[in-house]
């Protein structure tokens, strides 16, 4: 599904990613843990093509294609999804309009027919019901005035509607109380299947109690310094990142 090879990236000329190697097979959930400033979000943005994140070396293959050559919208249409750490507020664009535009853009790209208003509302009602999202959130402008929990649930809703094959979850637990965390994690778990891969980025082990990963990687100083099974997350919770942050 995803192969990252010796990935180096800079932000404002400053090296952030310094040789990442990572492979995620179809259906696997990998977690990336690391201290603040280790490059976790940079990795998420490089994978989705955000402006200002410059790849200086290395390669990323997604379903065998060169991901880094693609425009952000093409990556999305090919099934790459980023759940933002800080979802962007878009005044003046109703959430429903946004979701419909996004879904139909992706469907067009995939050669599928666009959904009309009725078909779309039917789909949306199903998904919102599963995620416990109030209809009111759909009418409001995208993320405007949403609570932290609502914003994160809205990200999961978008993921459920767009049906990606690779979902990158950037600090999806940040700013959530335990009930909201459970709701969001349930939503994510419901989307786990044999074809869909996930990359879960988190600072804390807490989220991984609910979204249990197949593999855990420690990202520090721009590199993956250690990889292991889900038990690695527990170890990090006990010991902290001190072992990884000191200069080698």
């Amino acid at each position: 599904m995803l192969e990252i090879k010796n990935l180096h990236a800079t932000v404002d000329g400053k090296p952030i990613l310094q040789g990442i190697d990572l492979e995620i097979a179809a259906g696997e959930v990998h977690a990336i843990m690391g201290p603040n400033g280790s490059g976790k979000s940079t990795l998420a943005y490089v994978l989705t093509g955000r402006e200002g994140y410059e790849v200086t070396e290395g390669q990323v293959l997604y379903k065998g294609q060169d991901l880094l050559e693609m425009e952000p919208e093409a990556r999305a249409a090919e099934g790459v999804f980023l759940a933002f750490q800080y979802p962007i507020e878009i005044p003046g664009v109703a959430n429903t309009t946004f979701l419909k535009e996004a879904l139909n853009a992706v469907r067009r790209h995939r050669g599928e027919s666009e959904l009309d208003a009725m078909e779309f509302m039917k789909l949306l009602r199903e998904k919102t019901k599963e995620l416990g999202i109030a209809g009111d959130m759909l009418k409001r402008p995208v993320n405007v005035g949403f609570s932290g929990g609502e914003k994160k649930r809205n990200e999961v809703l978008q993921m459920a509607v767009l049906n990606p094959t690779l979902a990158v979850l950037d600090e999806t637990d940040s700013g959530l109380d335990i009930d909201a965390l459970k709701t969001v994690a349930d939503g994510v778990n419901a989307l786990r299947n044999a074809e869909r891969s996930m990359l879960v980025i988190t600072h804390y082990q807490r989220l991984l109690d609910y979204i249990v990963p197949d593999r855990v990687h420690v990202l520090a100083r721009g590199k993956i310094l250690r990889s292991g099974g889900k038990e690695l997350a527990l170890e990090l919770e006990q010991k902290g990142y001190a072992d990884f942050t000191q200069a080698a």
Binding site: E73, A76, I88, A105, V106, H109, L162
Partner: peptide
């Protein structure tokens, strides 16, 4: 906002139109 819309598959020209309209 433009990146957010494009990140959801909305082509750049359409994303710009949506933002101008908004």
């Amino acid at each position: 906002a433009l990146f957010y819309l494009r990140c959801r598959g909305i082509p750049e020209a359409k994303a710009r139109s949506l933002l101008i309209q908004a």
